[in-house]
């Protein structure tokens, strides 16, 4: 059975604003949700997205049966991802949706969930490959394409964050220390601290250690961490 929109009687076509209904296309099965149920947009996405994918799979390239009048001016003759947007917007308009019967919903959802996982895996692999080969701009374009098609899942969102161009902001003060004196100290004492981390402040050695974490902990406990500059010496 294909996902359909608005194939039942006129009395069923209009629900109170905010209601979202899913009934079978023959209008013989009770709705999946009670008439008083008002789903959130997130709920609608999670419920409807699998159905949109289902529609895409079952009717690739074939327009849905949604009459334009039910879509309130939206483009009705579209399938696939656009179908999802149509569902969500219809929900806000209070238009009911006729789709698969109760018995078909769970397999549908499972199938769609598998499809989403597979698609996400493919996307992640593509992004990773692009980044590993230094094609960061292409990876950014790829992610932009996913955002445009509403396919951003949490695993993908992390990539969107780390591949975003950096943002540079001027701060209100200068917090750099006395690099000149610290540099002078480094030139004079490099030979004595080979293989160590040193912490300097105003040209004075605060401490040294082969382990940076240990040096950090020691200075913190001594209240000397603020303003210290850490350098590793070869």
């Amino acid at each position: 059975m294909n996902a359909e929109v608005g194939t039942s009687s006129p009395s069923q076509r209009r629900m109170p604003r905010g209601d979202f209904w899913a009934v079978n296309s023959a209008a013989t099965t009770p709705s999946l949700f009670p008439s008083t149920f008002t789903p959130s947009a997130e709920f609608a996405r999670r419920r409807v997205y699998p159905l949109a994918i289902y529609a895409e799979e079952r009717q690739p390239g074939v327009p849905t049966q949604a009459p334009a009048s039910y879509l309130e001016g939206m483009e009705a003759q579209r399938v696939g991802r656009d179908f999802l947007e149509a569902f969500i917007k219809m929900e806000s308009l209070g238009v009911f949706v006729a789709t698969a019967s109760l018995g078909e919903i769970e397999p549908l959802r499972a199938s769609a969930a598998t499809n989403i996982t597979e698609k996400t895996k493919k996307d992640l692999h593509e992004i990773k490959t692009l980044v590993e080969s230094g094609r960061v701009r292409e990876a950014r374009r790829y992610l932009l394409g996913l955002r445009m098609s509403m396919e951003v899942r949490p695993e993908i969102a992390v990539w969107s964050q780390v591949l975003a161009e950096p943002v540079v902001i001027s701060e209100h003060g200068a917090t750099g220390g006395d690099l000149g004196n610290n540099t002078a100290w480094l030139k004079q004492h490099t030979a004595e601290y080979q293989g160590c981390w040193v912490a300097l402040k105003q040209g004075v050695l605060l401490g040294s250690d082969k382990n940076r974490t240990e040096l950090h902990r020691r200075l913190k406990n001594a209240g000397k961490l603020s303003g210290a500059m850490f350098v590793r010496i070869g």
């Binding site: 943002v167 540079v168 902001i169 001027s170 701060e171 200068a174 750099g176 006395d178 690099l179």
Partner: peptide, 14 residues
């Protein structure tokens, strides 16, 4: 980090 009397730091969300 800017040195004293040499303007201001910049923060890079990197």
């Amino acid at each position: 980090l800017a040195d004293p009397d040499m303007g201001t730091d910049v923060r890079v969300a990197s």
